[in-house]
C-alpha cells in the first residue's frame, strides 16, 4: 500500500508538531516541578543565613556569595581576553593560517567536557600554581571554560557591524584604535554583552569544574584565596547525599530563577541588537 503524498505530509506534520510539543512540555515540567517544590523553601532566613550542620539547617548565603565571586572572577578574566581575541580576528588580521589556528583552538576548547576543565584547573591552578582550592582557582578555571563562548559571540557581533561605520571613521582620519573604541565597540556592545551573559549563565550552572577547583567548604569566603562552595555544588551535595531535600529544592529553584533571569536578559539584548542591525 502506498500512501498518497498528501496523507504522508499530514502524518509527518503531526509527528513533527508533537515532537516540538514534547520538548516544550519536558522543559516546562522540569522547571515548574523544581520551582513548585523549591520556591516555598526560599525564605528570608534561607537567603541570609550561613548553612550549618552540613547544610541540614540554616540558609545558603555563603554559597550565594561563592557563586557570585567565582562568576565575577571568571567574567573579569574571560571578557577582555575573549573580546580582544574577537577584535584581533576581525579587525587586526587577514584570514590565514593564524586565524585558522586561533579559531580551531577556540572551537576545541568549546567541546572540552567540564570535568576535564576541572582536572586541568585542579592540577594547574590548585596544585601547580599553589592557589589551593579557592575562589581564584575556580574563577580562573571557569574563565577558561567560557572563553570560547565569549570569543564566538563577540566575533559575530563585530562582524555584523556594517562596513560603512568603519569606512566613515577611517575617512574622517580615525585610526584603527579610535575606530574600534568609538565606532565598533558601541555598535557591537549588545552582541558582546550577550556572549558575556551566556558565559555568566554557564558559570552559575557549572558543577563538575568548580567542585574540583573551588572546593566545597561551607564557610563564608573571606578572600580570593578562600575555598568556596557554589550553589550548584551545594545543591549537588545536598541532593546526592540526601542531606536536606527542602534545602536542595530551594537551592535548585534559586538556580533556575537566576538562569531564567540571565536568559531573558540575553534575549532582550539579542532582540535589541537585531532591531539595531536593521
Amino acid at each position: 500500500m502506498k500512501l498518497s503524498p498528501k496523507i504522508t505530509q499530514r502524518i509527518a506534520k503531526t509527528v513533527i508538531w508533537s515532537a516540538a510539543l514534547l520538548v516544550i512540555l519536558l522543559l516546562f515540567s522540569i522547571i515548574i516541578y523544581i520551582l513548585g517544590k523549591g520556591i516555598p523553601n526560599i525564605t528570608w532566613q534561607f537567603l541570609t543565613q550561613i548553612p550549618s550542620d552540613m547544610g541540614r539547617s540554616g540558609g545558603i548565603l555563603s554559597t550565594i556569595v561563592g557563586t557570585l565571586s567565582v562568576t565575577l572572577v571568571a567574567t573579569l578574566v574571560a571578557t577582555p581576553l575573549g573580546v580582544g581575541t574577537a577584535f584581533y580576528l576581525t579587525e587586526y588580521t587577514r584570514e590565514g593560517i593564524i586565524t585558522k589556528i586561533i579559531r580551531f583552538s577556540a572551537e576545541s576548547l568549546a567541546g572540552i567536557p567540564s570535568i576535564v576543565y576541572g582536572l586541568f584547573g585542579f592540577i594547574f591552578f590548585v596544585i601547580y600554581l599553589k592557589l589551593g582550592w579557592s575562589i581564584l582557582s575556580g574563577g580562573l578555571t571557569l574563565a577558561v571554560m567560557i572563553l570560547p563562548t565569549i570569543i564566538r559571540t563577540s566575533e559575530e557581533a563585530i562582524r555584523t557591524v556594517p562596513a560603512i561605520y568603519r569606512e566613515v571613521s577611517y575617512s574622517l582620519g580615525g585610526t584603527k584604535w579610535q575606530t574600534m573604541l568609538k565606532a565598533l565597540i558601541p555598535t557591537a556592545l549588545p552582541g558582546i554583552s550577550t556572549g558575556v551573559i551566556l558565559g555568566i549563565g554557564r558559570c552559575v550552572a557549572e558543577t563538575a569544574a568548580v567542585i574540583l577547583t573551588a572546593g566545597s567548604a561551607l564557610r563564608m569566603p573571606v578572600s580570593l584565596f578562600s575555598p568556596a562552595r557554589t550553589m550548584a555544588v551545594h545543591f549537588y551535595i545536598l541532593a546526592r547525599e540526601g542531606i536536606s531535600m527542602e534545602r536542595a529544592f530551594g537551592t535548585a529553584a534559586l538556580l533556575i530563577i537566576l538562569i531564567l533571569i540571565i536568559n531573558i536578559g540575553a534575549n532582550m539584548l539579542v532582540n535589541k541588537f537585531v532591531a539595531k542591525g536593521r
Partner: peptide, 14 residues
C-alpha cells in the same frame, strides 16, 4: 535556549 542553560545537576536530580 533555556533548556541548554539549566544546570546539569538539576537534570540529574529530576
Amino acid at each position: 535556549q533555556l533548556l541548554a542553560g539549566i544546570p546539569s545537576v538539576v537534570y540529574g536530580f529530576w
